[in-house]
């Protein structure tokens, strides 16, 4: 039907086009290592099938990890140069299944999504990291970046809390590498200590109130359970931190990762596209949305 051809004049996409363009289709990747961080948290090392890093992730960016037949989930990752690292807490079916994967296993991966931390904004400033539980995972990418580019940043202070000593993630990395970094203060706290616990006991916001970190020339980065974020924010305001200087990285239920499926919005922003890093000032109006 020549009429049809003249009329349509359209190229129809083939399978390869779809794979190339359709952002909802994952690429295949491989697990190379699985490290147990705590009783409910594991870190997975992921590379492409060619053994190389599938894409690079800026500190704070996220990617969608999937297991065929199980599901997909958005995780913040660390770009370690030759592989990506995802620290995953077991909370549901997908994360449960991800805890079972072994080196060599194939997973699906798509990304990178979102904007990372505003590195330019942070450069030259002191950084106060406030983290609770698995909330340290997204901040860790920036901590590692700062360590790598130590001279670009001022003093670093990490205030990190968890329910029990056993719930503190990345203990090895903190004790092995981070403590040795110059001008890097570390304050640890748990809700409930045990006999060997030598650090603080109590909630993160309370510890902040006690430590009184100075707001001058300081950017604060907060991540953790919603209640911890909200209560810490109250304390940070008391301490004189401006809402523009407090950043947080949010976790939401996500499906598409590309601002189309609609569910991860906070106001007119999508966490997947415009976040996951937000300035507190931008979230104020919608504090119940995360």
């Amino acid at each position: 039907m020549p009429e049809v051809a003249a009329f349509s004049g359209q190229r129809l996409a083939g399978v390869d086009d779809v794979r190339r363009i359709n952002p909802l289709v994952p690429v295949q990747a491989q697990i190379t290592r699985a490290i147990t961080e705590t009783h409910d948290t594991k870190t997975l090392y992921v590379v492409g099938l060619d053994g190389k890093v599938p894409f690079s992730l800026n500190p704070g960016q996220v990617a969608m990890l999937s297991l065929l037949g199980v599901g997909e989930g958005m995780f913040s990752g660390v770009d370690a140069g030759d592989h990506l690292e995802f620290s995953i807490k077991k909370v549901g079916a997908l994360t449960g299944a991800l805890h079972e994967v072994e080196p060599g296993q194939i997973v699906g991966l798509r990304g990178p999504y979102g904007n990372g931390f505003p590195l330019e904004f942070c450069r030259g400033k002191n950084l106060l990291f406030v983290a609770g539980g698995i909330g340290l995972a997204p901040l860790r990418s920036l901590v590692r970046f700062c360590i790598k580019h130590r001279s670009d940043f001022g003093g670093i202070h990490l205030v990190y809390g968890a329910r029990t000593p056993g719930d503190l993630a990345f203990k090895g990395e903190i004790a092995g590498e981070w403590v040795a970094v110059e001008d890097f203060a570390i304050s640890l706290t748990v809700d409930q200590g045990d006999r060997d616990w030598q650090h603080h006991v109590g909630f993160v916001p309370n510890l902040l109130r006690e430590l009184k970190p100075a707001p001058d020339n300081t950017v604060c980065l907060v991540c953790g359970p919603p209640a911890m974020i909200k209560n810490s924010i109250v304390v940070l305001e008391e301490l004189g931190f401006a809402a523009e200087e407090v950043l947080t990285t949010l976790e939401m239920r996500m499906k598409c990762g590309i601002g189309q499926c609609g569910r991860c919005n906070i106001g007119s922003c999508y966490v997947c596209l415009d976040g996951p890093v937000f300035r507190l000032a931008d979230l104020k109006r919608y504090s119940s949305e995360y």
């Binding site: 009329f7 349509s8 359209q10 289709v25 065929l68």
Partner: peptide, 23 residues
């Protein structure tokens, strides 16, 4: 359908679906 897949014993394939149709 976004894509079809097969899994099992080291074999994992992902087949995107292209919706070929007349205009």
């Amino acid at each position: 359908t976004l894509y079809r897949y097969e899994t099992g014993r080291g074999k994992e394939t992902v087949k995107p679906v292209a919706d070929h149709h007349a205009p």
